[in-house]
Simulated assay, not measured.
Amino acid sequence: DAVAYVLRCFVDDDITHVENRIDPLADAEIVETELMLADLDSLEKRVVANEKKAKGGDKEAKLHVELMNIALGYLREGKPARIATADGKISDEDMKAWEGLNLLTSKPVLYVCNVEEASAASGNEYSNAVAERAKAEGAQWVTISARIEEEVAQLPPADRDEYLETLGLEEPGLSRLIRVGYTLLDLITYFTVGPKETRAWTITRGTRAPAAAGVIHTDFEKGFIRAETISYDDYVSLNGEQGAKDAGKMRLEGKEYVVKDGDVMHFRFAT
């Protein structure tokens, strides 16, 4: 999961702003403060119950109390909980429990800068300021024009590329947003291809073949035998599965295989 801050980065006298100003950094600060207050309220309520369990010898509750107190320390200083991971306060073995706290401010951040049409390709002073903040925080950002996206959505597919080209854009902002989101969450895609349909499946980078198969169905993971695998480039350049097979580009991968972005896979499993 991630938190997306959609920020106004354009001037338009016909569209009012609740604060009567255009300051995306200040807007981001307001949202972040509200999220920190929500986390603070949630933790202060939960930590009491967990402290009682910890005193009774509950090891899981003891760990939760330790992690909650780390988060509370940052939040009470006006810092988001994710700073704790950046500071190395959360060990790898405790990361699952940390994520289980479901803190809004522990999630990675994506800044979405909504700019006017003329700035969609290069950004403007407002989006540039947001980009600098994102770089300093190790966050991700993307610049899009909501007005352009609205117009693109209404055009026939055949006319979209030409329209984007006139604006100096290679692709819709939605495509950039999705790609940046995948980068932020460290996600990749693999494909399954059959005579009736082609499907894309999203997994975390570093996932091994059995777990990737489990995204389709748990039986695929439990009974995993092997995965017939073709790289995306080979699949496209060799005109599909048969061409890849004829060229010796289809591989049989086992349980330790780490799935690559774009892999075309067919799973063999025992029932």
Results as ranks from 00 to 15, higher is better:
residue 2 A to E: 06
residue 4 A to Q: 14
residue 6 V to K: 01
residue 7 L to C: 06
residue 7 L to Y: 02
residue 8 R to S: 12
residue 9 C to L: 09
residue 9 C to R: 04
residue 11 V to L: 14
residue 11 V to D: 15
residue 12 D to S: 10
residue 13 D to W: 06
residue 18 V to C: 11
residue 18 V to E: 08
residue 19 E to D: 14
residue 23 D to F: 00
residue 25 L to Q: 10
residue 29 E to L: 06
residue 36 M to P: 08
residue 38 A to W: 07
residue 43 L to S: 08
residue 46 R to V: 15
residue 51 E to L: 15
residue 53 K to L: 15
residue 56 G to M: 10
residue 57 G to I: 14
residue 59 K to A: 15
residue 63 L to S: 07
residue 64 H to R: 12
residue 64 H to C: 15
residue 64 H to K: 11
residue 68 M to A: 06
residue 70 I to M: 05
residue 71 A to Q: 00
residue 71 A to D: 01
residue 72 L to M: 06
residue 73 G to N: 10
residue 73 G to Q: 10
residue 76 R to I: 11
residue 76 R to M: 11
residue 76 R to F: 07
residue 78 G to W: 08
residue 78 G to Q: 08
residue 82 R to T: 07
residue 83 I to Q: 09
residue 83 I to M: 09
residue 83 I to L: 10
residue 83 I to W: 06
residue 85 T to I: 12
residue 87 D to P: 05
residue 89 K to D: 08
residue 94 D to Y: 03
residue 94 D to E: 07
residue 94 D to I: 02
residue 95 M to S: 12
residue 97 A to C: 04
residue 103 L to C: 08
residue 107 K to S: 11
residue 107 K to Y: 06
residue 113 C to K: 10
residue 113 C to Q: 10
residue 114 N to I: 02
residue 115 V to K: 03
residue 118 A to H: 11
residue 121 A to K: 03
residue 124 N to C: 13
residue 127 S to H: 04
residue 129 A to V: 07
residue 133 R to N: 14
residue 133 R to A: 13
residue 134 A to D: 12
residue 134 A to K: 04
residue 137 E to L: 13
residue 139 A to S: 13
residue 140 Q to H: 14
residue 140 Q to I: 12
residue 142 V to K: 04
residue 144 I to S: 01
residue 144 I to A: 02
residue 145 S to K: 01
residue 145 S to V: 02
residue 147 R to G: 13
residue 148 I to T: 00
residue 148 I to S: 00
residue 149 E to Y: 01
residue 150 E to T: 15
residue 150 E to L: 13
residue 150 E to D: 15
residue 154 Q to E: 08
residue 154 Q to C: 07
residue 155 L to C: 13
residue 156 P to M: 03
residue 157 P to L: 04
residue 157 P to W: 02
residue 161 D to H: 07
residue 162 E to P: 00
residue 165 E to F: 00
residue 167 L to E: 00
residue 168 G to R: 01
residue 171 E to Y: 07
residue 171 E to G: 10
residue 173 G to T: 11
residue 174 L to G: 13
residue 174 L to D: 15
residue 175 S to T: 13
residue 178 I to A: 09
residue 181 G to V: 01
residue 184 L to F: 08
residue 184 L to N: 05
residue 184 L to I: 05
residue 185 L to D: 11
residue 191 F to R: 09
residue 192 T to S: 02
residue 193 V to W: 07
residue 196 K to T: 06
residue 199 R to W: 13
residue 203 I to G: 06
residue 205 R to I: 00
residue 209 A to K: 04
residue 216 I to Q: 10
residue 216 I to C: 14
residue 217 H to G: 12
residue 221 E to S: 09
residue 221 E to V: 12
residue 223 G to K: 08
residue 225 I to N: 06
residue 226 R to Y: 01
residue 231 S to Q: 12
residue 234 D to H: 05
residue 234 D to T: 02
residue 235 Y to L: 01
residue 235 Y to K: 00
residue 237 S to Y: 12
residue 239 N to D: 07
residue 240 G to N: 14
residue 240 G to R: 14
residue 242 Q to R: 14
residue 243 G to L: 01
residue 246 D to L: 08
residue 247 A to D: 11
residue 248 G to H: 04
residue 249 K to T: 09
residue 249 K to L: 12
residue 250 M to N: 08
residue 253 E to L: 07
residue 253 E to V: 06
residue 254 G to C: 05
residue 255 K to L: 03
residue 256 E to C: 14
residue 264 V to Y: 01
residue 264 V to H: 01
residue 264 V to M: 03
residue 265 M to A: 05
residue 266 H to I: 10
residue 267 F to W: 08
residue 268 R to E: 11
residue 270 A to K: 15
residue 271 T to D: 15
